[in-house]
Structure formats: C-alpha cells, structure tokens
Amino acid sequence: MFIIGSSIKYLKEEKKNNFFPRLQCEKMDRGKNRTNFYASKNSQIYKDLKDIIRENALPYLPAKSLYRCLGVCRDWKLQISTPFFAHNQSNSFLSISGFFYQTQAGMPSFMSLDPMAYGIPDPSLKFLPEPVDVRSSCNGLLCCQGRTGYKAYYVCNPVTKHWEKLPKPEADHGPDPAVVLVFNPSLLNFTADYQLICAFPSDLDGYEFEIYSSGKRSWRISGEICFSDCKIMPKSGIHVNGTVYWKTVETRMEAGIIAFDLNSERFHLLTSAVGPLGIRNGKLYSAYARGQSLVVSALSNTHSNTMQMRSNARTWKEMQPRINLDISLPASPSTRYGYSNGGVKFIGGDVVLLVRGSRFYCYDMKKKASENLGEVDFDTKAGIVGYVNSLVEL
C-alpha cells in the first residue's frame, strides 16, 4: 500500500498548492459570464481522490495487494475485475516479488519478499492436473513440467490459476531440460503471446534448439546446431532483449555461456562471469559474493573473443564500487578455474538472493539493505525461480 500512501500525500500537496490561485481567479471572475473552459482544462483537480488513485495508482500494485483492494468500494472492485485492468497491470508492474523454491523430490513453495503485498493462493501449484517441477518464469507466467507420462509442459499464472498444456515436443529434451520461458507484455496485444526455448543434446555431439510458439500452438526445431563439448547448466537460462543465455559447466578450459539469438536463430559462445545470470536495466548481469563484498558485472562486449590480441576489450564490466553487504557470508572455496558464486542464487532488477547455511536473504541494491526471508530445507540442486506477482491473462 506504499504506492497508494505516496499518491495520497502527493495529491494533498497539489490540492493545497492550487487552492489559493483558484480562489483568486473566482474573485476576479465575479460579475462576468463564466465558462467551462477552466474547469475542463483542469478537470483532474476536481476529480475525487479515490478516482485518481483508481485510474493512476492501482495498475502499479502487485496482484495480492489488488485483491486486498477489492473490498475498498464497489467502483474499485469493478475496475480491478475487468480484463483491461489485468492487461494494464501486467504491463505496469514488473518487479520481482518472490521466488519459487523446489527440491528435487519436493513440492514447489514460495518465498515472498513482502507477504502482505506479494503472494499466490496455492504455492504448491496443486491446481495443475499433475505434480510438476517449476522450470522457468517470465513477467508473471510460470513454466512447469509434469512428472508423469511424457512429462508435458504447462504454462500458468499462479495468481489466477489459469493454465495451458503444451503439445508434446518433437525432440527428447532429457530428464532436466534447459528450457527458458520468454514473455514480453505488450500494450497493443491483449493475448499473452509467449515462447518456450529449449536447448537439448544433439545426436551430432552438440546442442540443438526447439522453439514453441503460443500463437501457432506448435513446436519446431531450429536449423542451428551448436557444435561444442560444453554441457549446459539446465537451471541457468535467462532471456534478455531477444537473446537466450545459458551457462555451461566448467571444463578444463573455463566456464562459458551459449547465447542463442531468437531473431537470427544463430548461436555464439561467450566467456562467462562468476555467479548466476540475470536481467537488470535491460542488460545481462552476473553476481557473486566474497565475504561481505557483492561483485556485480554487466555484459559489455559480446565480441571480445574475436578482438585482436592484447585488446582492452572485455566481455564483462564490473560495477564500481563493489557493494558492501550488511551480512557476512562464509568464505566459499574457489573452483578449479575461478571463484564460486559465494552464496548468490539469483540476480534480477535490484534484487539479489543470497543463501547462508539454510537461511535465505534478499539484498535490495537500491535500499542497500538485506532482509531475512527465513530458513528452508536447503538443497544445493534445488530450483530457484524469480517471480513477478502479475494478473496477466492466458
């Protein structure tokens, strides 16, 4: 409700600042023929405060807060219940609200960054027709995979409990598919058009890419083949500005990144930074912790591996200065060819998810403060997926 409180304070100040000039104009106009020109030009001043909040503030609230607002009045309830409002909110609210956490054998659970503001009615996703594993998330939509039969994919909105079952893929994606959900809300499109991209092992010793389009309701295998002896980390995929990135397992040379351009359907290899990949300010970022220092780097040059020798061009640019954390993380041993992520499990927007022992912490890079999210049955191979509390309709 912070946005509503800020809006009320701002509007009260505006109303106070505009009162005396308006009173002087009314005195000067006494005895003259009044017109509606002034009122129509400044019609926003004469609107009720609840109407201004309903039209300008509500779309920027998360889904759980909006459900709490249904009881404010009948007008608010009607406004929030319309498909147009849900569409507007899915384009206006894009902040990380929490994380889906799931061990290999367990059911999904949800860690909220603010239980009063962000939440879903069924964190275990029992509304789906079978038990599922959470695979990917993007702007309010969640991609899950069933555990029975041919292990079908489901795309759902856990807030509204609406879901779609995808047709069977043409290729075998393996037991732990490297699948990435791609969904970019559009003001001009009321339907949630999304894609699912999966990099799967090829019979030709490399990786191929299968793409699902919700508009065509079908899968197709791209003609591109990534010939490489690297192995993709299944839960590492992220979509940024038309390109999907996967981290690869560290080899005798170094850890790397496979980048697949969705427009040209071409891949290229990048040098990897330490830590998980995420999107921030429309760019690809990576982060790791070392003691009480948080090291955040942005992808700055995708062609550094083709530059001439002794070039100053670098693939990644580290943010300066380094961030001093208000919690101390235990020193993590360095890997054979670099540093470990030091407890960083997620980076997205201004949010960094850290783990110390079995306790999770969320660090806000804007507020420069961390928050204790609680203790879980920690599993190093557990899936952790960032989530946006949206009303997006399937």
Rank of each mutant, 00 (worst) to 15 (best):
Tyr387Met: 08
Asn33Arg: 00
Phe20Leu: 15
Asp122Glu: 14
Tyr150Ser: 14
Glu375Tyr: 01
Ile52Lys: 11
Arg22Met: 09
Glu393Ala: 14
Gln145Thr: 13
Asn305Thr: 00
Ile8Pro: 01
Ser90Arg: 06
Asp51Val: 15
Pro177Ser: 14
Leu277Lys: 06
Leu353Met: 15
Gln292Trp: 00
Gly386Leu: 07
Gly140Asn: 04
Gln89Thr: 05
Phe84Ser: 08
Thr35Leu: 10
Ser95Phe: 11
Gln79Leu: 11
Asp379Cys: 08
Ile211Gly: 07
Ser95Lys: 15
Leu270Pro: 10
Val72Pro: 06
Val295Met: 12
Ile258Thr: 06
Pro115Gln: 06
Gln104Glu: 15
Tyr387Leu: 09
Lys366Asn: 11
Gln102Cys: 07
Gly343Gln: 07
Asp364Lys: 04
Cys230Leu: 11
Gly291Lys: 04
Asp133Ser: 14
Lys368Pro: 03
Tyr10Pro: 00
Ser109Thr: 13
Ile53Cys: 08
Asn184Ser: 13
Leu23Met: 15
Ser112Trp: 05
Ile279His: 09
Ile238Tyr: 01
Val72Glu: 07
Leu204Ala: 11
Thr243Asp: 11
Gly106Thr: 12
Val388Met: 01
Gly278Thr: 08
Ala199His: 12
Lys16Trp: 10
Pro59Asp: 06
Thr248Gly: 02
Trp316Tyr: 02
His162Phe: 05
Glu265Pro: 06
Ile4Tyr: 08
Gly357Val: 04
Phe2Leu: 15
Val392Arg: 12
Val385Asn: 07
Gly223Ser: 12
Asn389Phe: 14
Val134Pro: 10
Tyr194Asp: 13
Asp133Arg: 14
Tyr194Leu: 11
Pro121Lys: 07
Arg252Met: 01
Ser124Cys: 11
Phe99Tyr: 15
Lys283Thr: 00
Thr306Gln: 12
Ala255Ile: 06
Leu391Gly: 06
Glu210Lys: 04
Arg220Asp: 08
Arg252Ala: 09
Gly146Phe: 12
Leu391Arg: 01
Ala105Ile: 13
Asn184Cys: 12
Leu142Met: 06
